[in-house]
Amino acid sequence: MHLIHQTENGQIVQADKENCFYMTYKGMEYKMNVCSFIAFKSKIDTYNLELMLMSDVTKNDLEIIPLCNKDRFLVLTLEEMIEVKHLVQGALVMLELNSIVHQRINRANLV
């Protein structure tokens, strides 16, 4: 298990043996394969937090976000949305960094 990224209430780890990620947020654990993780990140990206913050409509205080294939749902307040967005985006940056490291090692081995 490798810790990818963490915030105050959550963390994302990579399980190499299972080829998947585990996201833990406020005590709940969500297992995601790579495809589900990317789909979840794409879903999270579509929420315009700035717009939600500026809006007076009360329904914007709570969001229901389905995980891949609607197996489970995340019900998040606006504050939690900000944190989960940060958690997922941060994890993706770290994963991309890992890809760059792998790429550099591969290239060095080719020389």
Partner: peptide, 14 residues
């Protein structure tokens, strides 16, 4: 640590 992202996705997110 495995590069799971690259194994599954051939193009960068951006």
């Amino acid at each position: 640590m495995k590069d799971l992202l690259r194994q599954r996705v051939a193009v960068q997110d951006s």
